[in-house]
Amino acid sequence: MGLILQVSNLSKSFGKKEVLKNINLDIQKGEIFGIVGGSGVGKTVLLKTLIGFIKPNKGIILYENIDIQKRLNYIRRIFGFSTQEHCFYPELSVKENINYFGKIYRVKNNDLKRNSEIFFRLLELDEYKNIIAKNLSGGTQRRLDIYCSMVHSPKILLLDEPLSGLDPILRKKIINILKEINKLGITIIISSHYLEELEDFCSRIAVLNKGMVVTCDAPKNIIDRYAPYTIISIISEPGNYSNILKVLNLNNINLINFEITSNGLILHIPREIDKLLFYRILNLISQSGETIKGINYNLPRLNEIFEKLVEH
């Protein structure tokens, strides 16, 4: 794959407020890189700094060993950026917007025409070409925005919260489109609150908290590191979950965590011994006079450890 973007010791302050603190990231060519974090942790600032729009106070960003701050004009053709808000002219039609951004990104007419055949189909915008942008639905507007951000066929596409405000179906659709885009060889850097989608979608994720990278790894590795347990959700009758916990405790069952909810009992058990322990727990519950009505066995998800990560 090879390194496409290298961020070293990146810091950025606005006045006295330090928004980014000593960020170090290596992004591989062709990967889908996720940036997660709560509101105001500096995700957008980081993305804008990566494209050279915001000048860092400290640190360096190298695109294929080129300092982006020194070659801004060149870098602007390398990056595509899709912001949280729709960055197109609502009064213009889809085609007019594409033509406009094509021109201001200095795309040759032939290239624009050739790309448009691919992207209109890929982004499912074919039938909306002549529709005024403001009359499009939310999902279509998001697709148009993504198209506008990659009208110049960037090497790296940055997407700032592209899934926000979309329903799950649209989110899935956008993710599928992004996967298709990635298949074209475009490196994608995406920031989002929707950790579940990112977990399945991104090859690697950087968790940002208070301007610092808390962790940066493949989602599975992060989960293994921060949530090395299996989650068992049990619904039983009569549902005396306190008694179940007491029985489990008396039998020295090693629980990492437990929670009694209105929907049942949730138990976190160590992953490496989970199968044996799982059957033992089921036996103990039955012996305690409970009839198991439902049972769910899951590995933890990224969003479940997110809070833990940002507290870390």
Partner: peptide, 13 residues
């Protein structure tokens, strides 16, 4: 005040 202004700003123009 339009979000699109940002896209103009980051364009090579």
């Amino acid at each position: 005040n339009l979000p699109v202004y940002f896209r103009n700003l980051i364009s090579p123009t």
